[in-house]
């Protein structure tokens, strides 16, 4: 049976705007889910920089030992520019806080001879973030390894997001989704009709 563990929607600055857990062990608290979202956002952007071929739009599927993570990026994106027509990078600020957090953990856990090199590496990582491209909204889902039809599901969720959230005149862009319709209801209905479970 196909099992979906959790669903995230993140805005173009890497902020978590929707998170729903469908029964993974050890549910994440709000802070952790926010950190995960912005960490994923920056990893997604870095993967574009490391591409050997131009035109890379980031990670679509991450295969971990115990789960698969499928990510769908919105079709439209608005790039932000400052008055000099340079792209503004909101990712940087978000990611910086995550990295600061990581550095905090390192400082206490890495034995002192290695500490300096690790901190140096993270500083370099932060510097590299200056060159990140502007990005778009993302929807990603964590599911059992080898689950099929996830691209269709993500497209469907994205359609729900555009119809019920973006077209809602009371919804403020980039803010957490508090629309009373429930994505999870639609998801359950979708799973029943489309997914072979």
């Amino acid at each position: 049976m196909a099992a979906i563990y959790s669903l995230y929607v993140i805005n173009k600055s890497g902020g978590l705007i929707f998170y729903k857990d469908y029964g993974s062990a050890g549910r994440m608290d709000t802070n952790d889910s926010l950190r995960m979202a912005s960490l994923w956002h920056s990893m997604h952007a870095i993967s574009q920089q490391l591409s050997p071929i131009s035109g890379c739009s980031g990670i679509e599927l991450l295969q971990a030992d115990t789960f698969d993570l499928h990510c769908f990026q919105s079709l439209t994106g608005h790039d932000a520019y400052d008055h000099n027509h340079n792209p503004i990078n909101e990712v940087k600020a978000c990611t910086f806080s995550v990295l600061q957090h990581l550095m905090g953990s390192f400082a206490s856990l890495v034995p002192s001879p290695n500490r300096i090199t690790y901190l140096g590496k993270i500083h370099l990582l932060v510097q590299d973030l200056k060159t990140l491209p502007a990005s778009r909204d993302k929807v990603f889902v964590v599911c059992d390894p080898g689950t099929q039809h996830m691209e269709g599901l993500l497209k469907h969720i994205y359609e729900l997001y555009t119809d019920y959230v973006l077209k809602n005149p009371f919804y403020e862009m980039e803010m957490p989704i508090r629309v009373s319709f429930s994505i999870s209801n639609c998801l359950r209905r979708y799973k029943r009709t489309v997914l072979p479970c």
Binding site: A25, G26, D32, M43, I46, L62, A64, F67, I122, V142
Partner: peptide
């Protein structure tokens, strides 16, 4: 850096265990 961070992300996101520690350990 990408591999290191992705590893800490997957370790934290693992939906099959409850004992995962903090992000970035």
């Amino acid at each position: 850096g990408l591999l290191f961070s992705l590893k800490s992300l997957t370790a934290k996101m693992d939906p099959t265990t409850a004992e995962k520690g903090n992000l970035g350990v």
